[in-house]
Design a binder for these strands. Structure first.
Lengths: 130, 130
DNA sequence: CTGTATCCATGTCGATACTG
DNA sequence: CAGTATCGACATGGATACAG
């Protein structure tokens, strides 16, 4: 099972040993821009400023940071064409493609239950303001 | 389609209109403790300190906050028994149960691809330190 | 065009102390 | 037992300026 030293403590009460593996993924999925970028790139490769225009609201800094994160995790591929002006293209890797399905499942769940959630929130908030 | 006023701007370049709905869910799913709590509660109702012991590493503050968030979103039900000492039980609602499947799908993806991700990260980090 | 560097505001998380 | 209150450390995100 390779030398993953994640079992350093005997995780007594957690059958959730894999959680240490899941957490970083949840972190990336849960961040503000990454999955949005993935969804845009799902429709085809883009250049930096194409993404910036298309995502609408993202700052240059956050686009760079998000892309670097996705690239580091192997979800996005970055190709530099050293021309003048320079050209950089981003596209999903196979790994990046493969995450779309589970993320979409979550997105579908969210859309399907959003009314239920909002109703719960309103009920909760109503009870607080007494 | 109900009066969801989320189409206030003509979302030209986004077929991702539902994103405003998905974001809050991603936020909850992506946070550090919420899904861990859901997974524990999936095996049965718990009291506050049972959760605290079982989650291991969570602070009292974060457990309270996470449970409040989950309760507000309608994923968790809180039942107070005004005895001495007081007793409070938490259990998943139907909505809470229903989110387990898509979250598990994402968890399975993470576990399945963790080696690939780590490899990509090491490759990336190796290239940075030159 | 594609970034990097700074600065700053805000949010998240944890430790600790205290309460009914 | 089941919280609330407070504080401080740290991470995240945005605005702006600058650079190859």
């Amino acid at each position: 099972m390779a030398d993953t030293d994640v079992m350093d403590e005997t995780v007594e009460h957690l059958h959730l040993a894999g959680c240490k593996n899941v957490a970083p993924v949840l972190n990336r999925v849960g961040d503000k821009w990454s999955m949005l970028i993935v969804m845009v790139l799902a429709t085809g490769s883009r250049r930096f400023n194409e993404l910036k225009r298309e995502i609408d609201g993202i700052s240059q800094r956050m686009l760079t940071r998000s892309l670097r994160g996705l690239e580091r995790d192997g979800l996005v591929n970055r190709t530099v064409t050293p021309s003048i002006p320079p050209r950089v293209d981003y596209k999903l890797t196979e790994l990046g493609e493969s995450i779309r399905e589970p993320v979409k499942a979550l997105g579908d769940w969210a859309i399907e239950h959003i009314d239920c959630i909002r109703a719960a929130q309103e009920r909760y908030d109503a009870r607080e303001e007494d």
